[in-house]
Simulated assay, not measured.
Amino acid sequence: MRWWMERVSWVRRRTPKGDWDISLVPIRQRHMGTDFAHRVTADMAESVRRKGGRFQLETEVTDLSLADDGGFLVETTGGRIHARFLLACPGREGAHWLRETVGALGVRTGYGAIDIGCRVEVASSVYEELTSVLYDPKLVFVTPTHQDRTRTFCTNPGGRVRVEEHRGFRLVNGDALKAEKTANTNFAILNTVTMTEPLQDTAEMGRQVARFANFWGGGNSLVVQRLGDLLAGRRSKPETFFDAELGFDKLVPTLPPGPGVTPGDISFAYPGRIVRNLQESLELLTRVIPGVAHPSTTIYVPEIKFYDIRYPTSDDLETNLPGLFVAGDGAGKSRGIVGAAVNGIMAAKGILRAAGQAEREG
């Protein structure tokens, strides 16, 4: 067993197989940090420019249509672009727009699972035993009541909880800097949701859940709740959010109550089954990391990952519409930045092959 597996063997001892519905998926990772990631992407962009590539930043794509020559016409706020081949990587924010736009061109799409959950913030010391070995530990749960699958995601030791702006609603997310650390660690617990009858559109379901959660925040706002309040069955309130008698003074959140962040009750903001799953996941997690159960632990909603739209494609990520390739989270082909990067390489190779074949046939 590798040395880093040995260092997390205590997790497996605390989660004996068959006794508890929780397991650790150990992987090796390197943390770049949000601040250093900008340097890497800037270097990549410069490399593309040196090879003749051109970027149109802060440019919105407003429409997409087919050209008479079989290519594509892309309407943007910076003008029209004609392309023989097109790679669409909409990200989670643009996933719904792309589905509606390419659907009108005859591109086949389907629905997959969506992840709906919460962002949890604890003191860094609580999670340090695990994050000192695994920067982003992956813990998978099977909830006792409904036998649903949940998991931890996007752990940020010494990180910050952030507001994520979308069209028509707000979500919560988290990140961490490499050069500057906070006293807290945040992570998501995500509940995987699938739908069959009578509804299948998980993307629209997620949008409705996000808007409803923002509604319970008093408008376009996140809902934040102390774990002590959640377990006691009461809503969090501004006047008691840092109450010392309740133990809430032990953790100062990196995203405290204020404009756009409202103390409340996630059991009103989310469907009951999801709330139950999240609460049971936290209870399972406290068996491995007892400090998570402190009353001051802070929970934010809504956190939703929109990568549920599915595009049937070739191995090169080409859709049923010749010349149109898709990649990334918003196209349902990845669940994170590393997978999305691999997607880009796969699609690029596919475009080169398609272009070479077209040249030979032309």
Rank of each mutant, 00 (worst) to 15 (best):
R273P: 04
L87A: 12
R310L: 14
D265G: 01
W97K: 07
R287P: 01
G218N: 11
W20N: 02
A37D: 13
A83T: 08
R360M: 09
G174P: 05
I299R: 05
H166L: 09
E245C: 00
A355T: 06
N220H: 09
R49H: 05
L227P: 01
G272V: 07
H31G: 13
G91Q: 02
R49P: 00
A188S: 14
N191R: 14
N191C: 12
V133M: 02
E164I: 10
A347H: 05
S281G: 15
Y135F: 14
P16Q: 01
T240Q: 10
T41M: 13
P271Y: 09
E165P: 00
V342S: 03
G218H: 13
D63T: 00
D115Y: 10
I266T: 03
L139K: 00
G258P: 14
P26R: 08
R273G: 10
Q147R: 15
T59W: 04
G159L: 11
G106I: 15
E165K: 10
N184I: 03
D43C: 04
L57Y: 14
V120R: 04
F215H: 14
R30M: 15
F268H: 10
G70T: 11
Q279R: 13
G206K: 10
T101G: 00
V172K: 05
H96A: 11
R287F: 01
S124G: 08
P90N: 06
T297F: 09
W3L: 12
D21P: 03
Y300Q: 09
R162N: 11
G53M: 02
A355S: 14
I81H: 13
A340W: 11
E58K: 05
T15Y: 01
R151N: 03
W216M: 12
I299G: 05
Y135L: 11
Y111M: 06
R99V: 02
D136Y: 01
W3I: 12
G103R: 09
T202G: 08
L246Y: 10
I274A: 01
S124W: 07
I309P: 09
L134Y: 05
I266P: 12
G112H: 06
I22H: 05
P312H: 04
G339S: 06
E46F: 12
N343L: 10
F153R: 00
Q279C: 09
T240Y: 08
S281C: 05
I81K: 05
L130W: 03
L278T: 13
S125V: 11
V142Y: 05
G206F: 13
M346A: 07
G78V: 02
E60C: 03
A113E: 14
R276W: 03
A341D: 00
V252Y: 07
L230V: 03
T240W: 09
G70P: 10
M195T: 14
D265M: 02
G206V: 12
G112F: 05
Y307V: 00
P312Q: 03
E280C: 05
T155D: 01
C118K: 06
G106S: 12
M1K: 10
S9C: 04
G70V: 11
N320S: 09
G168E: 01
T254A: 07
G94C: 06
L324P: 09
I289M: 03
L171Y: 01
R235H: 02
R80P: 01
G233N: 12
E165Q: 13
V120A: 09
E6T: 13
T297E: 10
I114M: 09
K250C: 08
T150K: 00
